[in-house]
Structures are given as structure tokens and as C-alpha cells.
Design a binder for these strands. Sequence first.
DNA 1: TATGAATGAGTCTTCATTCAT
DNA 2: TATGAATGAAGACTCATTCAT
Lengths: 208, 208, 208, 208
Amino acid sequence: MPREVRERQMVDAAVEVFARRGYRTASMDEIAELAGASKPLVYLYLNSKEDLFSACIRREAEALIAAVQAAVDPAAPADRRLWNGLRAFFAHTAAHPDGWAVLHCQARSHGEPFALEVAALRQRLVDVVTRLIADTAREGGCAVPLPGEEVAGLAHALVGAAESLAGWSNGLTGSGRSDRAAAETLMNLAWAGLGNLTNGRRWAPARS
Amino acid sequence: MPREVRERQMVDAAVEVFARRGYRTASMDEIAELAGASKPLVYLYLNSKEDLFSACIRREAEALIAAVQAAVDPAAPADRRLWNGLRAFFAHTAAHPDGWAVLHCQARSHGEPFALEVAALRQRLVDVVTRLIADTAREGGCAVPLPGEEVAGLAHALVGAAESLAGWSNGLTGSGRSDRAAAETLMNLAWAGLGNLTNGRRWAPARS
Amino acid sequence: MPREVRERQMVDAAVEVFARRGYRTASMDEIAELAGASKPLVYLYLNSKEDLFSACIRREAEALIAAVQAAVDPAAPADRRLWNGLRAFFAHTAAHPDGWAVLHCQARSHGEPFALEVAALRQRLVDVVTRLIADTAREGGCAVPLPGEEVAGLAHALVGAAESLAGWSNGLTGSGRSDRAAAETLMNLAWAGLGNLTNGRRWAPARS
Amino acid sequence: MPREVRERQMVDAAVEVFARRGYRTASMDEIAELAGASKPLVYLYLNSKEDLFSACIRREAEALIAAVQAAVDPAAPADRRLWNGLRAFFAHTAAHPDGWAVLHCQARSHGEPFALEVAALRQRLVDVVTRLIADTAREGGCAVPLPGEEVAGLAHALVGAAESLAGWSNGLTGSGRSDRAAAETLMNLAWAGLGNLTNGRRWAPARS
DNA sequence: TATGAATGAGTCTTCATTCAT
DNA sequence: TATGAATGAAGACTCATTCAT
């Protein structure tokens, strides 16, 4: 069996086991067995548990980002782009729950090397969203320019909301089209909020 | 030294170590040492590593919820309640980064017993927010009643956005009042979004 | 059982196993079993295989040097001191063959940390001998002063000769007093050689 | 590439790696790579790690003995023969430090099969020296016949001294002709010592 | 209340060795 | 002649947990 195929099987198995057990609890024995290979072969191809985990993170991260970016047609208007990006995000995470679990739950809680890696991925997502927000503001005829830091904050908020909704709607059983519903909910929230902000309508605490 | 004091020291130490190292990597030795007690005593008081971790989750969760609820004056108008709740959430997580790390990062990634526990906490937060949204809708003269599932989705989105913003703004260095800025950003986003929804102004994909 | 006693038993066992199997081949399992303790206890007390081996080297080295130095009466004449030192060296190595094997065979062939440690020990032995040679020269009315480098060379040669003789005579079976014979042989060789050198009688290759 | 050439490359590589890492720590992977061949080929030609190590020992041992014997002209007087033998010994070990390390450090510390092999070699060296001593005694007009066991002891002492001096002088840096100096030092020591012994002048402990 | 001493079970990792080609 | 692919066996090390005191 050629090396590349074997290697993909191994990473597949690793993603599954890491998602199920967590990084530390997962054992290389279980991963090797699930991959249908011997442990030394896993080490020969992937070096160490750390490297294997990194490989999982990288592969799943690239896949997620690629899915989102493929869905965003640069020629479409901003709202359409946002909508399609959200749809792709929810669809992809719903279709790859193990990969999403590795990225969202495991990678962040097991120390520097992985946290950094997944932070870099997340930053790329945030960047995509940041650009969408900026474009939305511009195309919507932004009356009051938003400061860069606020845009970044909004992007973080949206990404967090998406992550949270993904976890929730994927956890609901049986609701066949829940990932579309999630996208709609978030789209409504975001669209109205962004529209108001770019028009200078802000909420302010009443003076007490 | 009375048992209660000792026990609190132990949980303090455990929260710190679990936050720094993660559940599996943290060792009972380190926790006992940091607590200034011997290991058998830790076991005598807290039974097992699992129970100790559960105790950490429970204590930090109660503290966070209590902080949020204490800030929400039931007599105030809905927007004010939401604002105060957000402020309290950001302030508390910023003030207790270890506790927040245990709840947000560690507890979710280490198997059933803890994930359930933290899910229950999160549900209570979501419930608080759900009620806020419902009240907001009612007080705002809700033209179009929101289905319960959508309200829940919004609540999850808001909580996720808050969590994400908390992580981001706590990570920024030097910006003295960043947790207030985070609350403002999120408040603007949420307020406008909710307002639109309760008035039936929804975004819909253009027919293609 | 008090820690010190256990620790000595462990080092005893380790010296025996390291001598028999060699550093790398020796297994911590075997050492622990021979010491009558569990492996974790060995690690608790002695940290690692490396540290355990170092502890063996240090203990055996100190014992050997102490034996030699105890035998050398500073008030005695130089020849007497040399003789007593040699006797003690041969007697000690004969009485502690495992310790000698660890020092002479194992410690030198297993990488920097140990080689350095045993080199330091050997240097101390060489220093003792160097001083004896210098004293011998002085007391013998040295006609031609020996250069420092040559004295060091002589010391190394004597120590090497002693080591070699020790290995040989300890390997001979049955000869009850062989370690005394070894000392005599070496004493004769050294005494005459030193005497000639300090009197300027050197061997020189005939011109060809 | 013809088998003999390949095989020599492999043993060359093995000597280097064994000298650097030690028998157990050396890996067949590294040896094969350094030899520029694949691992199965190494096994095809040399059977096993043990056999490969034995091959190294044998080759280096033969080379050393051959060098010493080539230098000893049977027609020359005994002192000349001793001198030339010493010179050749120091020169060869200085020129082949890896081979010498394998013989002197590694082979003795890794269990029966190798220790026996290297002991046999050493015995041949000792035999050469033994004959030299006996000849010296005869040619020097030996007044008091030396018992065979003492001659053997002297030979062991000389070989050990030579080994020790070789290690020391090879370790010194920069002294361009140190292997000649080593030979001189040892020659002086030996010559005078032997001369005295064959003339019955012995050192004896003063009666106490 | 408090602990020094002790361990069973399990993990990552390595390496000599062999097929199938 | 030559090798890419594969593994069984073994070893260092760690840790949650428990007695005896």
C-alpha cells in the first residue's frame, strides 16, 4: 500500500480517536489499530503523538477554511457572501463533526503548540469575516466609519456565535435541516446589527 | 486548620493547575503541593481527581452565574438588563481567567462526566439570556412572535459571541477598559439584531 | 523501611546489574526486582536511569579513592606510600569486582555524562600517583628534574598498568594471594623505572 | 558495486558509528545510511548486529596486531624490538581512534561474545610482549630467572600502561608528536624496571 | 487531622529484523 | 544485486491511588 494512502488512513483514524477521547486520553495503540496498521508504522510516518495531532489540526483546519472560501463568490454582493460563508461553515462542521471537535474542543486545551496552531487558523477565519464586514459597510453606504478595532471585535463575535451555534445545532438530533436554520438565525442577527452600526445607530446606556 | 478552609485552598490550587496544564496533564502531586497539603489529605477531602475537577467546575460555574444574576436588576428595562448582564459576564471572566479557562477550555474536552456538567451550567446561562430576549421582544412590542427554537438559537449565538469576545479582549494587552468595549460591541450587535427580528424585518436570500 | 536504607539497596542492586549487563542492556525492571522494590519507587528515589548510573559511579568511585587514600600514610617514606597505595588499590578492586567493572568498563563507554564523571575520578587517582612520583623523585635526590608532562605521563602509565593487572589477576581463579603478587610486580617495575629516571639514566634508541 | 567493496564500506561505517554511539545505542539505520546502502543489504551481507560488531572487532584487532608485528624486526636486539613495538602501537591507535575506541571501550563492555573476542586479541598482544620480556631477560644476561607468572604479569602491566597512555596522549590536543613522547616515557619505565628485575634487584617492603 | 512509603497499570517510543518485489 | 514497507518485542517513565501510622 502506498505511503500516502496509509498516511491518510492514519490521520483519519487519529481525528476520530482524538475527537472521541481527547488528546491525552487517546492512545497511539488505539489509533494504530483503527488505522489498520502497526504502531511503529504510525511513528515512522508521523513521528510522534504531537506531530500526529498537529497533522490532524492542520488538515481539518485547511479543509474548513477551504470549504468556507470556496463558498464565497468574490463577485457576489456582501450580504450574499456572508450568507454563503455561514452556510458553508455550518454545513462543513455538521458534515465533519470529528474534525470540528478536534479543532474546537481538543486543540485549544492542550498546551502551547496546538493552541497556537489553532489560533492561527481561527485568525484566518476572523480575517475572512473582517473583510466581509468591511465590505458590507462600504457597500451599504457606511455613514459612520467603524474603527478597525470594533470591526475586529465584531468579527470575533460572529465567529464565536457561529461556533456556538454549530455546537448547539449539531447536538440537536433529528432536525434534518438545522444547519440551515442556524445560518438563518445568525444571518438575521448579524445583518441587522451591522446595518445599524454602519448607519450610526448605536445603543447607549441611559444616563443613570 | 479547619476543613472548609483547607478544602477551599485545595480547589483554588486545582483550578490554577487545571487551567495551566489541562485536566489530564495536571498531576495530583502538583495540586497537593500548591495547596500546601499532602496528597492523602486531598484524597480524604475530595475523593478522586474526577471529583476534584467536578468541584472546580461547579464552584467556578456557580460564581460566574451568580455574578451575572447579581448584575441583572429584575426591575430594570430589558435593554438595561442585557447590558448589565453582559458587563458582568465580561468583568467576571476577565477577573477570573483560570476559572474561565477551566470552564470554557478544559471542562468541555475531557469526556462525558465533565462535559455534561459544564453543559448544564451553560444551559443556565443560555436560559438567562433566553429570558432576556423574550422580555426584550415583549417590551419592544413584538410584532411577530419568535418561535422558541429561534430564541434558543439566538441565545446560544449571543453566549458564544460573548465567550469569543471575552477570550479575544482578555488576550489583548494594555487596553485598560477592553472588557467594557467588548460589552459595547456585543450590545450594539445584539440590540439591533433583536430589534429587527421582533419587528419582522428579516434578511432573506435573494431568489436566484 | 527508611529511605536511606532502601536507597542503598537500590544502588547495590544497580551496581550488580549494570556490571553484569552493561548500562544499556540493564533494565530498570531487573534492578528494581533485585532491590526488592517496585519500579516507581526506584524512580521516586533516583529520578532516572541516568541518575541512577551516576549515583553508582559516584559511590563506587568515592569508595575506591577513599580506600587508596586511607592506606597512604602521609608520614611514611615515598616508596612505602606507593606500595601501600598499590596494595589498597588491588585489594579494593578485588573485593568489589562489580563496582570496579562499572567504573572501568561501563562508565567509560556510554557517552559524555558518565565518561566525564569517571574521567574526573580517574584524574583524582592520577593526581595521587603524580604526587607520589614527585615525592619519590625529591626524596630520592633527584638529579635531573622531570618535566611535568612526563610525570603526568608516568602517572597515567602506572594507573593503566594497575588497572590492567587488576583485571588480569582478578580474573585468575584460585590463586589466593594474587592481589599481593600484582602489587609486587607493579611495585618492582615502577620503583626501578622511577629511580632510573630521576637519576637521569634514560634509554635512548641507538642511532641507526 | 562488488560485494567486497560494499562490505568494507559497511564495516567502515559500523566502526565509526559504534565508536561514536556505543554498541547498544548505535542503530542499524544509522550504520546503513552512513554506508550508503539499504538496511536489508546490510543484513544480507553481515547477518545481524552482533555479527557486524564482531566483524568490526576482528578487523580492527587484526589491523592493530599486524601493525605491531610488522614493526618488530625479529633480527633486532630486544630493546630495539620493544621500542619499535611500542612506537607502532601508539602510532596505530593514534591513527585509528575509532577502531581503538571499539576495541578498548566498546567491545569489553557488551557481554560475553564480544568480551571473549577482544580478550583473545589482547592475549595475542600480551603474548608478543611476553616474548619480548623473556628475550630481554635472556639477552640481558638474566641473573635470576623470572617465574612465568611474573613475566605474564609484567606483560599485562605494560599493555595496560600502553593503553592508558594511548588514551591520554591521544586526548591531548595540539602536541604534534605526543605519541612519540608516550612511547619514550613508557620505554624508560619498562626498560629500567625490566633491567632491575632480571638482575635480581627487587624492591621489598621494609620489615615493620 | 495528617502523611511518608509504596505500587499496578498503562503510555510513548525505539529498534533489530524480515518480506515481497 | 537491491529496497520500500512493515512489525513484534521490549524499555523508560508517569500517575492516580492506598496503606500503616
